[in-house]
Each structure stands twice: as structure tokens, then as C-alpha cells.
Design a binder for these strands. Structure first.
Lengths: 346, 346
DNA sequence: GGCCAGAATGTAAACGTTTACAATCAAATC
DNA sequence: GATTTGATTGTAAACGTTTACATTCTGGCC
């Protein structure tokens, strides 16, 4: 039964006939107290329904057992998966998590600042590009150790000292592009995400590398920048479909955009993959129920989430975990479904 | 520049040549201090880079400025929308939010308990059916006022005393069903969500009411229970398509399920809406990019989120806001797209 | 100038823990 | 039995605020 009582450690101590220090020890270091008294205190705790006041604990210990997760958009199903992993690990490590979106950039910066300053969170998980406030977080880090771990996103050089967990985006994008090439496509377009995201740059880099290796030209206008949203993708796809040299395959920097891309292609009366092939990235849960099911790159999102969280815990517990700042690279995987075929003959 | 300094109110006081009480007042009740000293203190705060220690504040004030949001699944795009509203209001009211999913029921209950007991959150927003721990939260409420506001979900009788914000699910479901009837359907099936959710019951009730009013029979097996997930909907749709008296229209209790429903219908080689019409519920962002775009019921999710949050704030500030426990009903709207047509002739 | 009222400020307690240190206890050793 | 030792417990300070209450200003009034 949930009990919102106001009983403090004092009442327990009195009832058990011991000092408050002993009660505290019973709760936190049971091995440092005699079996007999431990039982007595245990009993008193039961009787009173005592539970430690977390506020007081946080205050005293200077720890909140909370971590802050900053991501571009909670709505993206990919991040939902990452969050699931984070949540699982957090639960195991007895942390609570707070979430913030970068979507409305301006305010967020303040919030992170406030969070950091006031030490309301013990650490930060960054799943987003951190251009807007990168410097600030960085300076915070240099001043005092507020643990930060980066997930999914790749790190810009000046931030490379943060621990991070992500896939090899370049390799994955190469693999995706090469699959399209293998299927016979030569006119391959790429819808990238926001410029600010390095991750998207890596994917673009992989795409370009694969095209180059295949000695294929990339026409002006084949690489379209969109916001990583449905609307962004729709707009980008429209541009591609109007391109003088229309691509036969579109590689979207993530699956959310592939959904928008599908819509626009169909709206134009074209078929997937007969008229145009589509490649995604992430493998969100909708990928396999799309029509046709989406060929994409699987990211072990839950695993990334878990690892990031565990990594952060280590950093928090070590006081300052910048010892092991090797990025952890987790494996990706090409998932072949039905959105890619050979290009149409013309 | 973010500053993780350890300067406390004492340093500021010393530098400004005043007592700590005055510094505190400058920060919290500037009007209760002389302009001149206020400036002096202001200056000292700047110089030292002081920011109040939130942990100490929370401890002292017994308030955390955090609220906990409990929802079935963060992954559902509908809740993403609700969360956006909550977040906006929270930001305005200077609250932070923590999220918990009921998905893995067992542990969650503990967590809520812990949260509640330790007063780490000032209030709770429930967007989920609360069967598993309903009693407990309820008992907590009776013991001491931990504000709880319910959103989206409709309230079971014994919980009706909690403030809530939601649409009229019965009316909305009637409207949806009547639209199908109006289009000429008579064989209409309903895919409901989890039994535990009252909300789904209300929608089912509306569906049944509309059918009854139209004097149409509901065959055994036309109302299928699924989990409110893609997989649940796929399974449910499969059953419907194998039904001896196959329905010509399927009304899904939410859009997420409609996505799964689409997939299964197409997998069976049927066309939407020519062979079978589909009606959704929620109007998530994917609804309009689905193929064909989904006819559904729009819920003002962001608005619900905002209202719920503001309501909770009121409850927190009033100490115990169970005065105004009238449910707030917000308007829904039928959104006609292309997933519903007249039934096929046979 | 003395007095008063109200404004401004200071003093100190309190919030519920944790923890260094001191004190006590019990058992083992001589 | 005295001494030592280690285990167990108690005492009290500390964490950084807020705030009731006491004190000191300040300026206006007689």
C-alpha cells in the first residue's frame, strides 16, 4: 500500500530505541549493524511505514539519481526504441530519467543550463546534435565533471572526449548505397537530415563514398536537405521527382523520412519499387508494415540506449569517467524487404 | 556560460556584506528588500556566479517542481502529441517532467509507489488505465493529497473524483460509426484495445450504440480485442478477414492499430477502401500520409496535454485541488480522408 | 529632539538525512 | 582480572536553503 506518511527517521529511531544513525545504517549499510538491532529497526520501519525522504537524501548526498536525456524529438519512433533501452538500464540502476527535446531550441538551452547548474540531474545523455549549446556544455565539463554520454550521434572533433555509443554510420550508409548499386541503380538520390546533425553528415559521406567508388556521378540536386520529419521528406521528395534527371532510387537518412517519401512518390502516381526504389535507415517498427515493407538499415537502438545509460552510470559513479572515452561502436545490419528492386528499364 | 560552481548563498552574503536571509529574499521576494541592497546583492551574485542549489530548495520547500507522467507507451504517436502539450505547459509553469510507461507493468507499480512515497514528484498525470495500481494511488490520495490528474483516459466510477480532461469517447465513436453507416456499410467490425482501458470500452460502447440505433446486428467475432499495437491489430484483422460474414468496414480503436490493419488487409490482397473501409481514431501524424490517407477522429491531443498540466499545477498550488473535479470535455472532430468509401456491391 | 510605525535587515532554527568521530560493548588474549 | 581489539552504537555537525521572529533602520510626525 502506498504510504505518503511524514514519518522521519527520528520516529523510527525512537520506536526502535536506537539512534537515528543506526537507523540510517540499517537502511544503507545493513552489514555494519548487528543482526539483532537490525531486526528491531526493521520492525520499527514496518510499524511506522517509514521511507527515507528522497529530497533530504538527494540534498545530503548531492545526488538525485536522475539523468537527463536530450533528444531531437520524442516523437520519432527510432528514439522511442533508444529510450526503451535507456529506461531498462535506468531501472536496473535505480535512476529516473527526464526528457527534453531540442525541437524548440531556444528554451531548451536555458533548461539544460538550469539543469546542469542546479545539479538536478546527475548526468546527461545526449542523443542530439549539440551545436546550439555545445560550447556551454563543454565549458561546464571543463569546469567540473558533469558526466555526459553521447548516443547515436557522432561526435564533432572538439567533443570527441565524451564517451559515446553509436553505429558506424559511414559504413552503414555505404552498405545501403551499395545494395542499391548492386540492384543496378545508378541514379541514386539522398535525402539528408538537418545539417546540424553530424550523424546525417556521416551518412551522406557514406553515400558519396559508395557512389564515388562505383564511379557514378552525383547530379546537382540529388542530395536534398530536409528536416527529419514527414513534411521535410515530402518536400525533399517532391524536389527529387521534379529533377531533370530523376533518380531511380532514393536513400532516406531515416525511416521517418522514408514514410514521407513513400507518400509523395505514391501521390505522384509512381509505384515502389517498380518505378522508384526507396532505402531507409533505422528500422523503426513501422518499417515492416509499410507498403511495400521498407528496406533499411537496422540500428540496435535498444542496445545503444542500454549501453549509453550504463556508460553514464559508470561515469557518474567514477566521479568523472573521462578515462574511457573510446566510442563504442555497435553493429548495424541491412534489412532487405521489398522497397528496393532493379531500376525500371527506359 | 554554464557554471557548475559550488558557491552557496553564504559566499554571496559575505561578498555583498549582508546576511544570507537578505540574499535569499533578493532571489525569492525582491520586493521585500531595498533597491540599493538588491543591487549590491545582484552584483555579488553576478561576481560569484551563484545559483541556488535546487536540491536544497526542494528539500527545504518540500517541492520538486517535477511531475510524473504515466502513460501506456511513449512510442504511440498519439501520446507524443499529448506529451507535447504537457511539455509546453510544464515549461510555462517551470515544471520538469518525468515519464513512465505502464508497458512493463510489474516494475512500474513499484516505481510509482516509490515516487509517490518519496515525494520526488509534486504530482502525477495519468494517461493510462490504472487498473493495476489504481487502488494504491487511490489510497495514497485518501491519506494525503498527492495531486493526480487524468488525461485521455476516462475514469472508472471509483476514481471519478480525480480531475480529468478528455474527449467524449462515446459520442466520437458514435460519430465514426455513423459515418460508416452513412456510407452504406452494414457489416462493420470493431477492433478494440486492451480490456483494462475504459477508454476503449467507451469507444466500443459508442460503436454498439450506433449499430443498435441503426438496427443492425453485430455478429459474433466482429468485436475483436487486440493490444493497442501493430501486432495486436494485425492479429485482430486477420481474424476479421477470416470471418464467415466478413465485414466491409473496420473501425479501429486507434490509429496505431489502423496501421497494422492496413497492412494485413493489403497482405490479403484487398484494397482500401474499395474492398474494405477503415476508420481510425486519434489522428496521429501518420494518418494523412497513409495509403490511402486515413479517415479518423481527431483528438485535440496537445490541448488535452496542456489542460491536464495546468490542471495539475492548480491542484499542486491549491494544496489539494479536489474541489473542481468535473471532467473537462474537449471537442473531437471527424476527419474524412480516403480510407472509407461505400461498401463493394456483391 | 523624541517618538512611532513601518520598512529593512539580521539571527537562528528547522528541514531529514549522512557520516566523522567518539564512546561503548563484547570477546579474545595475556 | 586486566588489556586489547574490533564490532557496534551514539553524538553531533553538516549540507544550503527558507522563514518566523527579533532587531535595527528610516523618515515622518508631534
Amino acid at each position: 500500500m502506498i504510504n505518503l506518511s511524514e514519518v522521519s527517521i527520528k520516529e523510527v529511531a525512537k520506536l526502535a530505541g536506537v539512534s537515528i544513525a543506526t537507523v540510517s545504517r540499517c537502511v544503507n549499510n545493513p552489514e555494519r549493524v548487528k543482526e539483532q538491532t537490525r531486526l528491531k529497526v526493521q520492525e520499527a520501519i514496518m510499524q511506522t511505514g517509514y521511507t527515507p525522504n528522497t529530497l533530504a537524501q538527494s540534498f545530503r548526498r548531492g545526488r538525485t539519481q536522475m539523468v537527463m536525456v536530450v533528444l531531437p524529438s520524442v516523437g520519432d519512433p527510432f528514439f522511442t526504441r533508444v529510450m526503451r533501452g535507456i529506461r531498462i538500464a535506468a531501472r536496473a540502476k535505480r535512476y529516473s530519467i527526464m526528457i527534453d527535446e531540442t525541437q524548440f531550441n531556444t528554451l531548451t538551452e536555458d533548461e539544460i543550463g538550469a539543469m546542469v547548474v542546479s545539479k538536478q540531474a546527475d548526468g546527461i545523455i545526449l542523443l542530439a546534435a549539440l551545436s546550439p549549446f555545445g560550447n556551454q556544455v563543454l565549458s561546464a565539463k571543463s569546469q567540473r565533471a558533469l558526466p555526459i554520454v553521447v548516443g547515436c550521434e557522432v561526435l564533432s572533433p572538439e567533443l570527441a572526449s565524451f564517451p559515446s555509443v553509436h553505429i558506424d554510420n559511414v559504413a552503414a550508409a555505404i552498405e545501403a548505397t551499395e545494395f542499391l548499386l548492386y540492384k543496378g541503380h545508378t541514379k541514386i538520390a539522398f535525402i539528408q537530415g538537418e545539417r546540424s546533425s553530424l550523424l546525417t553528415k556521416d551518412r551522406e559521406f557514406g553515400y558519396r563514398a559508395a557512389m564515388k567508388r562505383a564511379e557514378l556521378p552525383i547530379e546537382d540536386g540529388w542530395v536534398v536537405e530536409g528536416r527529419m520529419t514527414l513534411a521535410g521528406a515530402i518536400q525533399a521528395t517532391r524536389e527529387l521527382l521534379n529533377h531533370a534527371r530523376k533518380p531511380t532510387a532514393i536513400f532516406c537518412a531515416n525511416d521517418e523520412m522514408a514514410i514521407g517519401c513513400y507518400h509523395e512518390i505514391k501521390a505522384a502516381g509512381l509505384r515502389i519499387p517498380e518505378d522508384i526504389s526507396v532505402m531507409g535507415f533505422d528500422d523503426i517498427r513501422y518499417a515492416e508494415v509499410m507498403d511495400p515493407p521498407l528496406t533499411t538499415i537496422f540500428q540496435p537502438a535498444e542496445e545503444i540506449g542500454e549501453r549509453v545509460m550504463y556508460r553514464l552510470c559508470r561515469a557518474i559513479e567514477d566521479g568523472n569517467g573521462d578515462g574511457d572515452s573510446q566510442p563504442e561502436i555497435v553493429p548495424h545490419k541491412l534489412i532487405v524487404r521489398q522497397s528496393v528492386s532493379s531500376p525500371p528499364k527506359d
